[in-house]
Amino acid sequence: MNYFSLVERSRLERRIVVVATYAAFALALLLAPYGKADGLLWLRAAAIGLAVTGAAGYAAILGYSKRFAVRSQRCEHVVPDEREAAVRDRAMARAYTVVAVATIIGGAWMWIAADDPRHWTPRTGTDWFEVLVVTQVVMGSLPQAMIAWGEPDADEGTDGVMVEGLQ
């Protein structure tokens, strides 16, 4: 078994990887500013470690959903079957809804809180770089994470029912 591949993993393990990936990125972003202070070099090291962990999970999630051709719908090398194409389209449709709601909430927050220094909005170049990284990570992996989250185990049918003979 390839330890970095999610293909042969159970659904529970895939879900743990999805949660761990996003949690690692979020913690890395939260810890990174504190690591700049003197004497807190270990915090910076922890942030880097979490970012690397998140990147490994990100790669594993993308690798798992490669056969669904999320990124390259017209790629000739990866031709998903009818069920896989339907799963991919459903995941992307759900991801669109999630991102649409998040965009509206984010836009409203920017508009409302921009003039009030008590509330956090991205103001400096570093803030905007962090927002760009979060956008890139989320937009680049959300449908794939939804596929990894929802796909049944190998010994289950596509509708989640155990296949006879594999029980």
């Binding site: 991102v99 760009l132 890139q136």
Partner: peptide
């Protein structure tokens, strides 16, 4: 479903362009 899936790709590009270029220069309310 296909339209929503294609919209996701378009929205991804638009959001990245917005965060990288347009939003940081929007200074006024």
């Amino acid at each position: 479903t296909t339209a929503l899936a294609r919209s996701y790709g378009v929205l991804s590009l638009l959001l990245l362009c917005a965060v990288a270029g347009w939003l940081p220069v929007a200074a006024t309310n």
